[in-house]
Amino acid sequence: MAHNAGALDRRDTAWYVDKAVEWLVFIGGISAIIFIVGIFVFIGKEGFGFILGRFDFAEFFFSPRWTPTSLTNATYGALALIVGTASVTGFAMLVSVPFSLGAAIYIAEFATGKRRETLKVLIEMLAAIPSVVWGFIGLSLMNPLIISVFNVPLGLNVLNAGIILGLMAAPIMTTIAEDALKAVPDGYREAAEALGATRWQVIRQVVLPAAKNGLVAAVLLGVGRGFGETMAVLMATGHSINIPSSIFDPVRALTATIATELGETAEGSEHYQALFALGILLFAVTFVINLTADLFVRGIKDK
């Protein structure tokens, strides 16, 4: 009767279908890796020509003169663009981090039931507003507002773009921070409360230290969001190459430079390649930010 088992032990259609599906979904899975590598390869393909050829490290990182269209003396100093991006992102974080973390603390530790759900939905809505609409808000609402409130000639500046970016980065920071706070075991809170600590004491002395890594990740992802934002900073910064001396100065961001100049360059030209080189810089920085944030997030889970 031993042959009985052998006869039934056939690889049937279902077995082969299962294997085929496994391969198919595996391809879907690794496609994410293929795409990310593809992004690097295709941007590199256009941009490395510049980096290996015309690229001058000192000029690129330390000269504020970005004059790629100059016929006689084209220079590719990205300092002003880097400072532009950094100042807007920095100001945005200054505005946004306290509020985002505060909102996360409120949602995770104080709010309950319907109020909590409503807040979460509204923050999700905030995240859903397209960046071009934010840019439009900066242009047509914030601009006149800043001019009249601060009595300055131009309302498209670091202040304007910073506030807009801060609002755009707030949802991701709030959400990730809330997750981090929620991940702190209730046992910690109960133990501290049993010792007679008030809610705030529990939060400050127990919950916040325990959630520290997640909060750092939240801020990092917020920085990444602000750093890579394109349309809103294009429309709200004033778009002029300039190292700002106050928040009322207009600036120009890396992303916005690519967005405005790419359409006007000839494919393969030095200028065109320089824009791809800016892309490589953006890609590399956000890659590092995301990687670091992920390491911090995994830090929470390992605990």
């Binding site: 088992a5 052998g6 032990d9 056939r10 690889r11 049937d12 077995w15």
Partner: peptide, 12 residues
């Protein structure tokens, strides 16, 4: 008579 881990089609 057949070791269960040697079945080629575990679903069967």
């Amino acid at each position: 008579g057949t070791e269960v881990r040697n079945w080629r089609n575990v679903y069967a």
